[in-house]
Design a protein around this nucleic acid. Structure first.
Length: 844
RNA sequence: GCGGACGUGCCGGAGUGGCCAAACGGAAUGGGUUUAGGCCCCAUUGGCUUAGUGCCUACGCAGGUUCGAAUCCUGUCGUCCGCACCA
């Protein structure tokens, strides 16, 4: 495009001022927020010629305390990306919703003598209002709230579908119970033996019959597909760890005539087994305890129970003899069975074969109880010398004292022994996962009712699909236990099968069930016939860019992946993974360095900041501190720096002369476009900001500037500062919205690298002269008045042109000569020092 | 113990084989402007040296690869995060 002749675009000066800044940010922000909303600027449809892009932030739990700057930081990261993608020609889905069921609302409501529904809906209203004031470009038409029956009816629907498919079951087993939450919890919600919400509350194990979802059915696929994901390595490794696959052998040991399985990764050490250890929490432990040992075992269990979780970790290995003996299937030898505190009950079979010579834990236990230690693998072969071990020998080697397997390398022996056991029907190769099935029932009110009834005749019966939703009754009494239990109207029902008397399930679903598929509902959030129309999810899904915190690595992100796979197998979806890319944002810390939170009292509120500095300034500041995946700290002086920049931008646009751009301005602009595009694409917003600032400084040095460059600058700044750029876009006389404009495209031919080099050269000269000034001031006590430069003739033009810049930078008169100019003023013959790229300098 | 990330001026952070260490922002000090300034503008902020084009030191520490290393490799120390008696 050609540069139009000088046009007289009037940039209206800004009259409105506020005390702190001279700019009425609030007015500008509200103006554009209203326009965006009224014109539904960010609403999207599936019918589009553009390529789709689904950008999603983990939806928030709407807490009563509202948003602080930390939230603003999180959402800005997504909004910047979304605005960038939108301008780059994508049909962008960027929705927002609320994970509005859950315990905190229930607790808060009870405490405030209110109702969770009222409480929650107020909180949501507040969230929406605050989020709108941050300038976030959500498609608000697609808002969803998990506590509305229009949403949770589909939770119930999926629950039934999973049941049909055998993915939902009830089972009595030891489950985790938090006394503060007054409910059971999933494995994923237990962190270091404590409740994930109550770091000070130990989890109790209770034997209860509960609802489970068979996440383990997908363990292998969940593990395997991690490789496909473009997620942070850290999160991927956490998930691999959580799923915890290990390959080993299940071996049957005979105890009291009955076969008991154990899991081991070291079948090669079977000839070294000198005792067995069963977990103290093993449900069938007492079957192994003889009458003679009963007292001792009970004493041991009692002691264990009274041990606090924090001491548990430090506790040394402890155990007690059960009185029973096991028979080693290989050696037929008799070995004692102990109950021990260090064996995990719900991994493998809760019992292990102990090989003290080759396992450090077993070694310690054997030492403590003077049990025999028998070495069966030696490193030094072919002359095995087995010294007295001071610790377990865990390296590879050759088998000794192992019957027919004598002399084999232990890695080979693993295979051979496993095969032999399998042939004899005494074992088999198995794969073990640490991942457990998902315990989804909760003994709490504020959640999705589980759609089942208990019939005296028919037992546990699923509700009919046509009876959904099973609505959560609103009129309930809080105070003692689950309010659903005391609600007769809810509990008393008829069996869908025999029409006889039945009792409704009063447990509700873990709210992670709600958040496991919300990204699908956004695609079709108003559908009242089905959870979503496949044509819509086919179009939008999978999520191209997911954004959220790392704390969900082993909770939400696992459940959501499971859900996607399960729904795929139920025919709802055609893809395997919900979130292609994941970005983990850092945390905003308060000015005191601690994570920003209300309880710590270090929150900075967006309202305050917006009024004083403007939301755009705040957004600019937040993303300029560091890469957005790092933790950052709020600082008042830091935002002042961003404000200085924004102020300069205002002044610039108020006074800019629109005309022709120099080659330099064009070059600078195109170089900036190239680099900033790359930076935003890769979430390096801090680098983008640096380059935006540099471009602005460069443009500021120009006498006049073309509209094209001016507009490009606004576009580059727009994702980060949407309001003021919209304002200036408008003041430049545009009728469109910059929000919907297209991103500038760089033209490599306009980038003049030589010019960049020349500018660098002038910079260097300025630094040289400044250095001389410094020396003159310090050594001679003189104030420099004038600088003479002697340049080699080919550089004369460059330096002549830079004279103005030199003067402003040095604040003294500057005169430039060619070093061969006979008429030059050069009393000390400094012209002789002139070199290529370095002029001679004389200062008076 | 295992796994992941990281270590650069006073601070936040750029730089990820040579152009080039310290961009950019903050802070501090000095100066200018101002009735005044907490606004704005300018200068200085590892050391030495000299009227400059230089040298030294310096990218946690120690080695190595290379003509050349903040950048690659090995070891080591330290910080942060996650998992943790998983047999």
């Amino acid at each position: 495009m050609k540069n139009p002749a000088k046009e007289n675009v009037k940039v209206l000066p800004i009259k409105e001022t506020t005390e702190a800044t001279g700019i009425n940010f609030k007015q500008i922000e509200e103006k554009w927020q209203n326009i965006w909303e009224e014109r539904k600027v960010f609403a999207v449809r599936e019918e589009s010629k553009k390529k789709k892009f689904y950008c999603l932030e983990m939806f928030p739990y709407p807490s009563g305390s509202g948003l602080h700057m930390g939230h603003a930081f999180n959402y800005s990261i997504g909004d910047i990306y979304t605005r960038f993608k939108r301008m780059n020609g994508f049909n962008v889905l960027y929705p927002m919703g609320y994970d509005s069921f859950g315990l905190p609302a229930e607790n808060a409501a009870v405490k405030a003598q209110s109702h969770p529904k009222i409480f929650t809906e107020q909180a949501i209203e507040n969230f929406v209002r605050q989020q709108k004031s941050l300038g976030l470009s959500y498609d608000w038409e697609r808002k969803l709230m998990t506590h509305s029956s229009e949403y949770y009816r589909w939770n119930q629907y999926f629950f039934l579908k999973f049941f049909e498919k055998g993915l939902v079951y009830r089972k009595k087993s030891p489950v985790n119970y938090c006394s503060k939450c007054e409910t059971v919890l999933a494995n994923e919600q237990v962190h270091n033996g404590k409740c994930w919400r109550h770091g000070d509350t130990d989890i109790e194990l209770k034997q209860l019959e509960q609802w489970f979802i068979k996440t383990t059915a997908y363990a292998e696929e969940l593990l395997k597909d991690i490789d496909k994901l473009q997620w942070p390595e850290r999160i991927k490794s956490m998930q691999r760890n959580w799923i915890g696959k290990s390959q080993g052998t299940e071996i049957l040991f005979t105890i009291n005539g009955e076969k008991w399985p154990i899991f081991t990764t070291r079948p090669d050490t079977i000839f070294g087994v000198t005792f067995m250890v069963v977990s103290a929490q093993h449900p069938r432990l007492m079957e192994l305890v003889t009458d003679k040992e009963k007292k001792e075992v009970e004493k041991f269990l009692k002691k264990l129970k009274s041990t606090k979780q924090e001491d548990m970790d430090l506790m040394e290995k402890d155990g007690v003899f059960t009185g029973s003996y096991a028979v080693n299937p290989m050696t037929k030898g008799k070995i004692p069975v102990y109950a021990g505190n260090f064996v995990v009950a719900d991994y493998g079979s809760g019992m292990v074969m102990a090989v003290p010579a080759h396992d450090q834990r077993d070694y310690e236990f054997a030492k403590k109880y003077s049990l025999p230690i028998k070495q069966v693998i030696c490193g030094n072969w072919p002359k095995p010398v087995c010294p007295v071990l001071s610790e377990a020998y865990v390296n590879n080697g050759h088998l000794v004292a192992s019957g027919e397997f004598e002399g084999l390398k232990n890695e080979e022996a693993k295979e051979k022994i496993a095969a032999d056991l399998e042939r004899l029907g005494l074992g088999k190769k198995v794969v073990q996962y640490k991942l457990r099935d998902w315990l989804v029932s909760r003994q709490r009110y504020w959640g999705t009712p589980i759609p089942f009834v208990y019939c005296e005749k028919c037992g546990v019966v699923p509700v009919l699909e046509r009876d959904l939703p099973i609505k959560l009754p609103e009129n309930v009494k809080f105070g003692q236990g689950n309010p659903l239990e005391s609600n007769k109207e809810f509990v008393e029902t008829k069996c869908p099968q025999c029409k006889g008397k039945a009792r409704r399930e009063t447990d509700t679903m873990d709210t992670f069930f709600d958040s496991s598929w919300y990204y699908l509902r956004y695609c079709d959030n108003k559908n009242d016939k089905k959870p979503f129309d496949a044509s819509k999810t086919d179009y939008w899904m999978p999520v191209d860019q997911y954004i959220g915190g790392a704390e969900h690595a082993c909770m939400h992100l696992i459940y959501a992946r499971f859900f996607t796979k399960a729904l795929r197998d139920l025919g709802f979806l055609k893809f395997d993974e919900p979130f292609i890319k994941l970005f983990n944002q850092g945390m905003l810390h308060g000015p005191d360095g601690a994570v920003m939170s209300k309880s710590r009292g270090n929150v900075v509120l967006p309202e305050t900041i917006s009024a004083k500095y403007g939301m755009d300034t705040a957004r600019l500041f937040l993303v300029s501190i560091a890469s957005p995946d790092k933790d950052i700290e709020w600082s008042d002086s830091g935002i002042e720096g961003s404000l200085r920049f924004i102020n300069r931008v205002f002044e610039y646009f108020n006074g800019v002369s629109v005309g022709n751009s120099s080659k330099r301005a064009e070059s600078k602009t195109h170089k900036a476009i190239k680099e900033i595009t790359q930076d935003i694409e890769t979430f390096q917003y801090n680098l983008a900001v640096i380059k935006i600032r540099a471009l602005f400084d460069a443009l500021g040095e120009e006498k006049e500037i073309n509209r094209i460059e001016l507009e490009s600058f606004l576009k580059l700044l727009h994702p980060i500062c949407p309001h003021i750029t919209e304002e200036f876009w408008h003041r430049l006389g545009n009728k469109t919205l910059v929000s919907l404009e297209s991103w500038p495209v760089f033209d490599a031919s306009k980038i003049d690298e030589k010019l960049e080099q020349q500018e660098q050269q002038i910079e260097n000269t300025i630094n040289d002269i400044k250095n001389i000034f410094k020396i003159i001031r310090e050594k001679q006590g003189k104030e420099p008045q004038k600088a003479y430069l002697y340049v080699i003739p080919p550089e004369l033009k460059l330096y002549k042109e830079a004279e103005g810049k030199l003067k402003t930078n040095l604040n003294v008169a500057v005169e430039v000569f060619a070093n061969n100019d006979p008429k030059k003023h050069d009393p000390e013959n400094k012209a002789g020092k002139a070199k290529f790229g370095k002029p001679g300098i004389y200062v008076v």
